[in-house]
Simulated assay, not measured.
Amino acid sequence: MKPHSLRRALVLTSEQARHPYRRSLPPHVFRPFPDEPEAPRDRSLREVFDEDWRSLVSTYCATFIVVTTFLA
C-alpha cells in the first residue's frame, strides 16, 4: 500500500470551490469565456420569415394536440 503522500489525486481541486461537486470538476471548467464572442451572421429576410413560420406552425400543432388530448 502506498503512503498517503505518494498517492496522486484523481481531480485537481480549486481553493475557491467549497462545494464537494465543484471541487470535483476539472480546472478547465472554471476558465473564463473568451473576451470576443463570434459576430452574428447576417440573415436574409427570407430566412427570418421561414424560421418564424416554422415556429408558428409547430406551436399551433402542439397546442392543437394538447387541447384535443385534454378534451378527449
Rank of each mutant, 00 (worst) to 15 (best):
M1E: 08
K2G: 02
K2E: 04
K2Q: 09
P3W: 08
P3H: 14
H4A: 15
H4Y: 12
S5R: 14
S5C: 08
L6N: 04
L6K: 08
L6Q: 07
R8M: 07
R8C: 04
A9E: 07
A9D: 06
L10K: 14
L10Y: 11
V11I: 10
V11D: 07
V11F: 15
V11E: 02
L12S: 05
L12I: 10
L12H: 00
T13P: 01
Q16H: 12
Q16D: 13
A17H: 03
R18I: 14
H19K: 09
H19W: 03
P20K: 14
Y21W: 12
Y21D: 08
Y21E: 11
R22S: 14
R22L: 15
R23S: 03
R23P: 00
P27E: 04
H28V: 00
V29I: 06
V29P: 01
V29M: 08
F30I: 00
F30E: 02
F30A: 06
R31Q: 15
R31M: 13
P32Q: 07
P32M: 01
P32W: 05
F33E: 12
F33C: 03
P34H: 02
D35H: 02
E36P: 00
E36D: 02
E38W: 05
E38Y: 02
E38G: 00
A39R: 12
A39L: 08
P40L: 01
P40Q: 03
P40A: 04
R41A: 09
R41K: 13
D42G: 04
D42Q: 10
D42A: 10
D42C: 00
D42F: 03
R43M: 04
R43C: 01
S44Y: 04
S44D: 05
L45D: 14
L45W: 07
L45C: 07
R46W: 08
R46D: 09
D50S: 11
D50W: 06
D52H: 09
W53F: 11
W53L: 15
R54G: 03
R54S: 04
S55Y: 07
S55H: 09
L56V: 12
L56Q: 11
L56N: 09
L56E: 05
L56P: 00
S58N: 14
S58G: 11
T59E: 15
T59C: 04
Y60Q: 05
C61W: 07
C61N: 15
C61D: 14
T63C: 11
T63P: 04
F64E: 13
F64S: 13
I65K: 13
I65R: 14
I65T: 13
I65S: 15
I65W: 08
V67S: 02
V67G: 01
T68M: 09
T69L: 13
T69N: 07
T69F: 10
F70G: 04
F70N: 10
F70D: 02
F70E: 06
F70S: 13
L71I: 08
L71E: 04
L71S: 01
A72K: 04
A72G: 13
